[in-house]
């Protein structure tokens, strides 16, 4: 879902940056408050974890596979602000250090995959956790987070033909409008990437619960 540089107009990414920077500052402050004086070592560990999660290829029924982003895992375990900050930092490192993802569109990627995915997953989990089967809730949290993020990305891409055209009227940024991006981006996330994220969330959190229950004295992550 990473948008590379050059496909989003300044009229989109500059306002997105104006929104993202204060949100990131609030997230950083809340994260430091939430995780006490070990915060820097802890934050860097969670950031490295969200990077590692993206390296695992997760097969889904139907014979295909993809990677998760781990937004729901972090949001459910440590809260949505911590998750949003760590994912955003991961995206920043990917864009800046590894050249993957684009710095001009960092804010849009951060708002979508960091904030929207984490908050959606967190509140879906909170809303349904005592009402529906636990495995289904975990799956739903992961799935809904990534699908909500895909809506933001689809809208950011789909409005580009309205924001920049050349002398002959052709788009000069992302060429397809909302009638294409919404079904293509959101549809693929409903049917595929959301399922991968849902599976990853369910597998990891069930495993953590299992080992927590098996040995209460053992030092585990939660």
């Amino acid at each position: 879902m990473h948008i590379p540089d050059g496909f989003i107009s300044p009229a989109t990414y500059l306002p997105a940056t104006v929104i993202a920077i204060p949100l990131l500052m609030v997230a950083f402050k809340k994260t430091k408050e939430a995780i006490n004086d070990e915060s820097f070592a802890f934050l860097s560990s969670l950031t490295a974890f969200s990077f590692v999660v993206m390296m695992f290829n997760i097969p889904i029924p139907g014979g295909t596979s993809g990677h998760a982003i781990g937004a729901a895992i972090l949001a459910i375990l440590f809260g949505p602000w911590v998750a949003a900050f760590c994912l955003s930092l991961t995206l920043f490192i990917q864009a800046f250090v590894f050249g993957d993802g684009g710095l001009s569109v960092f804010a849009i990627n951060s708002l979508a995959m960091g904030f929207v995915a984490s908050f959606t997953a967190f509140y879906v989990h909170k809303l349904f956790k005592n009402r529906v089967n636990h495995r289904i809730v975990l799956f739903l949290a992961g799935w809904s987070g990534i699908v909500a993020a895909s809506v933001v990305v689809a809208v950011a891409l789909g409005i580009q033909p309205l924001l920049g055209v050349d002398a002959v009227g052709h788009p000069i940024y992302f060429p397809f409008d909302l009638s294409v991006t919404l079904p293509a981006v959101v549809g693929s996330h409903i049917l595929f990437f959301g399922v991968v994220e849902g599976f990853a969330t369910m597998l990891v959190l069930k495993f953590i619960e299992k080992i927590t229950n098996q040995s209460v004295n053992k030092e585990v992550v939660v």
């Binding site: 999660v53 990853a200 495993f207 953590i208 585990v220 992550v221």
Partner: peptide, 11 residues
């Protein structure tokens, strides 16, 4: 394996 591996990395 995936559940344990990812949780293992988190741990």
């Amino acid at each position: 394996y995936l559940g344990s591996a990812i949780a293992g990395f988190l741990d």
